[in-house]
Amino acid sequence: MPLEFPGREDPLLDVRDLFISFGDNAAVRGLDFTIRRGETLALVGESGCGKSATALSLLRLLPPAGRVAGGSIRFEDRDILRLPENEMRRLRGGAISMVFQEPMTSLNPVLPIGRQITEAIRSHERVSARAARARAIELLNLVRIPEAHRRIDDYPHTLSGGMRQRVMIAMAVACRPRLLIADEPTTALDVTIQAQVLELLDRLRQDLSMGLLLITHDLGLVADWADRVVVMYAGRKCEEAPVETLLRAPLHPYTSGLMACSPKLASGLHFRQGRLPEIGGSVASAADVAGCLFAPRCASARDACHAVRPDAKPAGSRDHLLACPVHAPADYAIACC
């Protein structure tokens, strides 16, 4: 009997058993997740765990060295991996769009921002240049760029990082996408700007009822903005749960480790009172491991962990998935059959 996964009922995006490799190196090794309409799913993990590769694969934008080696990506009723290129092009920036990590370099330096927004609109809809420009001004207002009608002819280098990311977001939502992928949208920004940008993304998600895939390594952001969380390690999912469940009672040792490293979440901890805890070792140790990929860095690893690679299964409740038999509650073994 197939397992019941949360969100499998008519999901917006359904990724199953995704494998991505760069040459001989596996970046993503069998990842499953779904996003429902209007929901924010956070994909969390440290650098190099395959978050960005996953995000890029959803739009088939992996760099030439990377390729999807297996699995399926379904968006609504379409199979992303089998779509002809011209239909894929219509999807990009139309139904699915993306905000990138680096606002400083993600805008074309030699085109005015308005032009970069209108070309996105006009490549998807037959509208006049004048109408597209009017809509670009509306969009800039929507992302709260002051004096949008004047700013529209500015070049990116005259805008601050936060402003540029707003322009990126305006560009991304120009055609009312149903899924917005935000790949570390605030990593390059000041902390004070971070909250504003995320607030904006969240408001747009509600207004346009978009699904939002928020990719981050910052658990503090996850706590504030996500509905559900998928924790990734070395290209695999180790834990998935609604955000309250995960933050209240993380089960996987990697999740607990990440949370211990976050000064905001580990209450009362401050760097003046002692060193922040860290997870020993690096993600590179997962390169050629037969069993659980986290085992080389895991304090509670047993012999069996080095031999058998665990899959994510329901633990405790139906929407809490865990890939660790050691830290599982009592009913885990029963549920996994």
Binding site: L59, L61, R89, R90, L91, R92, G93, G94, S97, M98, F100, E102, T105, S106, L107, N108, P109, E119, A120, S123, H124, M168, M171
Partner: peptide, 11 residues
Amino acid sequence: DYVRTATAKGL
């Protein structure tokens, strides 16, 4: 990066 952005816009 901006070339990737342009592609991601659906151009």
